[in-house]
Design a protein around this nucleic acid. Structure first.
Lengths: 254, 254
DNA sequence: CGCAAGTTTGACGCTGCTCAATCACTGTGG
DNA sequence: CCACAGTGATTGAGCAGCGTCAAACTTGCG
């Protein structure tokens, strides 16, 4: 039973000037040729980051926003005793902290995992972009709304679900989001470079307990994993465990 | 030791046309006379609600937004097994679901407590308002940012704090927000019409445990309460228990 | 090869949950 | 005015889910 996905991406259909952000925002609004061009231009300043390099730090002033082009990032916050809560994951195409357009301070940290690629956009540049491209602005606002909906679902999950159910929900959400990006194989496998430590901090559990729960999910042949590669064997069961409904991840264009 | 506040409001300083929303948004932007007038006009359609009447229901279409003028409301979400998570509280001046401007569906419920007064604003009316009054729009966006910051803090709290600390944090946050509204007496007392059931659903604890924790806080003379009236006796201790920092509730105007 | 980071396992016990009963308060109808 | 019901607060007993501590093991990497 191999865990590794056969190449999930479909490179054929991708138009010349495209990247993860463009693909994502296209789902939220009908973008014109000019919109796409402007988005592409604004993502020109790219870099690949070392693991655990913070993009944004609590309390610091920020003069630019970031877009994940490749890899995974997450927001997090510390408690004074050192406990950490992960607030949400950033997948390719996610733009973080668009709110710096209004406020230049952050109340939380953002980091990326091993060798992710991000684009840096200066705030004035972003302002010009949305001013000149109302459809892009609309799409960005929608993206933010989905992000907040995800936070509500996390509150529900962390507050009310039991440990196995929290993990099940996490896998449902992340794999659904990755599937939208074409990064889940037809066999339900995907690559997610998070450690059990991060899984723990995201769900409000301890590493030890996460480990045991994962194993029980493996024993029941729901999810298996091996070195950051996960594979969902029984989606129905997983969804049922999580009482997962993907509605909150989508925003129907009215 | 009486719990009830001596009248905390200062009716003298209030200008003729004002309400909770105007007061709140004034903290986020310098509003002109026209802005205030428009806000006042838009809040004309008021009504007082029966307890536990839902303003918004999950999955339903919505054609208007609501503003809390008096009283308390909250957002919540159910799990399929009936467990409920409260996602956040709405205090006077809070406008809920401004995002209906973009999407007309809600993924969660909103309700108000006993005899709150709300204003209903039709979406097109709100759109006209923000289009004609950029300062109001700016203030509304800021209000949303603070709301999201509160959600992040709740994720941290629910995920990482212990029971007593969750409650302490809850009291810190709510009393700080109420203080901004002038609804906390100089002796630290305030009226908050929530039951221990709601406290439990907000913190992800059970009623029984909430009760025991509250009592331990009372025994230690940190907080006391009696029929919806709370009084913070030892703010420093409470803040320390919660490791509370009010920064996330404020947005410095740059 | 040897270290560092992450995973896995075991033993133990506390925090917080469940179940269940009682008490207190408020509003209702007779 | 009181009996009664409904809602919320309080208490107790018992227990389990999850955390803590600690150690061994596995994998990646210079």
């Amino acid at each position: 039973m191999s865990i590794v996905a056969e190449r999930a991406v479909a490179p054929l259909a991708v138009p010349p000037a495209s990247n993860a952000v463009i693909e994502k925002l296209r789902k939220f609004a009908e973008l014109g040729r000019g919109d796409v061009g402007a988005l592409d231009a604004v993502c020109r300043n790219r870099r690949t980051l070392a693991a655990d390099e913070d993009l944004v730090q609590e309390g610091r002033r920020c003069y630019s926003v970031f877009v994940i082009l490749k890899g995974v990032g997450f927001r997090y916050k510390y408690l004074s005793d050192g406990r950490r809560q992960i607030l949400g994951f950033l997948l390719p195409g996610d733009m973080c902290d668009t709110h710096f357009v209004i406020s230049d301070r952050s109340d939380h940290n953002v980091t990326v995992l091993s060798g992710s690629e991000v684009a840096t956009i200066a705030i004035p540049e972003l302002k010009r972009l949305v001013a000149a491209h109302p459809k892009v602005e609309r799409a960005l606002v929608r993206a933010v709304l989905v992000e907040v909906a995800i936070m509500r679902e996390w509150l529900l999950s962390i507050g009310q679900r039991g440990a196995r159910h929290k993990l099940a929900h996490f896998f449902c959400e992340v794999s659904t989001r990755l599937r939208c990006l074409g990064e889940v194989g037809s066999d339900g496998s995907f690559f997610l470079p998070v450690t059990q430590i991060e899984l723990a901090d995201a769900t409000g559990l301890t590493v030890v307990h996460v480990n045991r729960c994962l194993q029980s999910l493996r024993r029941e042949e729901v999810v298996i994993w091996s070195r950051r590669h996960f594979k969902i064997l029984d989606w129905d069961r997983l969804q049922q465990l999580a009482s997962f409904n993907d509605a909150y991840l989508k925003l129907d264009r009215p």
